[in-house]
Write a protein that binds this DNA or RNA. Structure first.
Lengths: 232, 232
DNA sequence: AGCCCATCTTAATAAAACCTTAAGGTTTTA
DNA sequence: TAAAACCTTAAGGTTTTATTAAGATGGGCT
């Protein structure tokens, strides 16, 4: 399924901003302007991460954070205005995993969210690798650990090969990847007999599952004579 | 190999303070009390990071920041007084990487500087500079990675051969390239059969896509008896 | 083991996109 | 004015990619 993130901030503009940016990365957002509603959401939904403002009209962020910690292990990121610096230590020791002061760059927030998700999923898998294990951008989410893929919050069931190909394309998003390169990356084979046809067939299947087409590609584009490409 | 940091603040005491602390960490500091001098420094020196005050007597920090972003990727940290908070978002979206309000604790500044440098070098270290993969000059942009070509912000869709020819012409811009040379570079063939006609046809197509003409060439000029040339 | 199922590969064919050729026209040079 | 160099055009050939379906593989299950 998709990756669910809770966002709580009484400043609507900020909550909305966060929502836009994270949704753009393909995450599913549960957004609330107060602690009560958020608290209810924590119990009803299966969450992967929470972003909490410290200052809330009803319940404050710390309390909410503690409440989450009683039952869940997913990462919590706290938001705070600069002036509240004093409380930093308190917040962190109360179980928050990261801490962002306002104002923040949206992209930095996105980066931190991904970092936490990475860290969290890594926690549950014994693989001690440093490389990226989660790719999320423009509605696409690829999770190396669970081998799951989500497109616009809808799960795609991909075969291993399909997943690998999409992974390679996505981790090189914005640049053309040739069939040869794809073949090497996915099959690890240098001596590929003339049958990069295989790659093509898998691309075809991928496009099908993504409701994409070769003529009017929304995701996987063909660059004639060069290779395939996914836009940033 | 020292790490060069630009510091700009019209309040001399602050600039000096920053200098002391950062120098103490082993950084090399380029310190200025106005935007003009700083601007000049950006062009002449190889910088790793910049700390800019928002309020400067001549050029303001945001403008300077933008100017840096046009040509450089190193991190920029903005300094501002509390009262100027309103502009925060503006400043952040204009490309700054971090934001510190005055008054600040020097050690926090040092920490942030290090954080930015870490982030920056981390992003840049895995990909060491290779050969040119992007050519951009006078309205023309050729990107080898995306295989895209843009002319005056309008995308041209070129075939592989056309792209190659234009690439060769552009990477030799300012100098005449003969058909033979073009043929060798693009086709990699030494024994090119009697007619460079093929090259000519491709040039023709290129000119067409560039809305160029042989009679009044804006881009690809014919140097009679020698070859083709693109102006710098 | 033997069968089923999902997946992968191969192969054959179709459809694009692209490249080359050649023929005739135009401009430049001597 | 003729020869040489260049330009234009379009048809036919080639290469690359897409599609499809059938055969191969291999793991899981009875």
């Amino acid at each position: 399924m998709s990756i669910n993130i809770l966002v709580v901030d009484d400043e609507q503009s900020i909550a909305d901003l966060i929502e836009v940016y994270l949704r753009n990365e393909g995450f599913t957002i549960y957004k609330f302007y107060n602690g009560q509603d958020a608290s209810r959401c924590v119990e009803s939904e299966q969450l992967e991460l929470a972003i909490l403002d410290v200052m809330l009209p009803d319940i404050d962020g710390f309390t909410l954070c503690q409440k989450i910690r009683e039952k869940h292990k997913f990462p919590v990121i706290m938001l705070t205005a600069k002036e509240e610096e004093i409380d930093k230590i308190t917040g962190l020791t109360l179980g928050a995993d990261d801490y962002i002061t306002k104002p923040f760059r949206p992209l930095e927030l996105v980066a931190r969210v991904k970092a936490q998700l990475r860290r969290f999923t890594k926690y549950n898998s014994p693989e001690p690798k440093q490389e990226e294990r989660l790719i999320a951008f423009s509605g696409l989410v690829l999770d190396m650990d669970t081998h799951e893929c989500t497109l616009n919050e809808k799960k795609l069931s991909l075969t291993p090969t399909e997943f690998s190909i999409l992974w390679v394309l996505c981790s090189n998003r914005g640049r053309v990847v040739s069939s040869e390169e794809l073949f090497q990356e996915v099959w690890g084979d240098k001596y590929f007999t003339n049958s990069n046809n295989t790659v093509m067939v898998h691309i075809r299947h991928l496009r099908e599952k993504m409701h994409d087409s070769a003529e009017h590609p929304k995701y996987i584009k063909t660059i004639w004579g060069v290779g395939y490409k996914i836009e940033k």
